[in-house]
Design a protein around this nucleic acid. Structure first.
Length: 247
DNA sequence: GCGACAG
DNA sequence: ATCTTGTCGC
């Protein structure tokens, strides 16, 4: 990546953020039935291993799809969407199923230009999206209740200059490290996003919201099996019998 | 020059 | 993200 091409992508995000921010509004959380979790791992032989895991509202895994491919870019903080989103779009098309919301491993508007990967994806597929990251990318932390009972809201990430609330800091366990940064991607707001994520954490008692937890586990397993040779890329294209076939 | 820096 | 064994703690 050259400096000028990086600048181009940053400008693209600045324009995209207009649409992202204007899409942020409370959503009808009660109408959410099916949720897709998006996460990626990396295989030495085939590159990115993107997983779209379809779950029920209570975190039950119904089915999932896999997309393999060499990422078009190296990882650059703030530009993750250009590296990983393309593979997620492929995985979502392969899923060819109905869903009401996507939860992405990474940030939504808790981003220097309000254009994290979850926001890119939400706008691209025109559906509500939520970003759930393990580490902060941008903004300042305002801790409110450091010792709340997990899963709970320990505080927020706010913009230094505007004071705008960007993400909720969710405590998922007793240790200091078990925190998540929850931010709206698109077509939802911070409160709705946080409500849903807290519910998903509660449902399965997982360290990550169930949809993303499943996607994370599956992507890592497949990446490892691909590199060890016990799994071939073509075998991934086979349609497997899943819970969806029995529902 | 020194931190901060999603995955 | 990934490279990696033991080890501190509940």
């Amino acid at each position: 990546m050259t400096y000028s091409s990086v600048a181009k992508l940053i400008e693209l995000q600045k324009r995209l953020s207009r649409r992202i921010v204007s899409s942020l509004k409370p959503m009808d959380t009660a109408s959410i039935r099916r949720i897709v979790g998006l996460d990626a791992a990396y295989s030495k032989r085939y590159g990115g291993v993107a997983i779209a895991a379809l779950t029920t509202r209570d975190g039950q895994l119904l089915t999932y799809s896999v997309a393999l491919g060499e990422p078009p870019l190296q990882y650059i903080p703030g530009l993750l969407a250009f590296r990983e989103a393309p593979l997620f779009y492929t995985a979502l098309r392969l899923l060819d199923s109905n869903y009401d919301l996507v939860v992405v491993d990474g940030h939504g508007i808790s981003h220097p230009r309000r254009a994290g990967i979850a926001s890119h994806i939400g706008i691209a597929i025109a559906k509500p999206s939520i970003g759930v990251a393990k580490k902060k990318l941008y903004g300042h932390e305002q801790i409110v209740s450091e010792d709340c009972k997990p899963p709970c809201i320990a505080g927020y990430v706010v913009d230094e200059d505007t004071g705008e609330k960007l993400a909720a800091i969710v405590r998922t366990g007793r240790s200091k490290k078990s925190r998540l940064y929850v931010s709206p991607g698109a077509y939802t707001d911070l409160d709705s996003a946080t409500t849903i994520v807290l519910e998903l954490l509660e449902a399965r008692k997982t360290p990550l919201p169930a949809p993303t937890y499943h996607a994370d586990r599956i992507s890592k397993t497949i990446a490892r099996q691909l590199d060890s040779g016990e799994l071939s890329p073509r075998s991934l294209k086979k349609r497997h019998r899943t819970l969806l076939d029995y529902i």
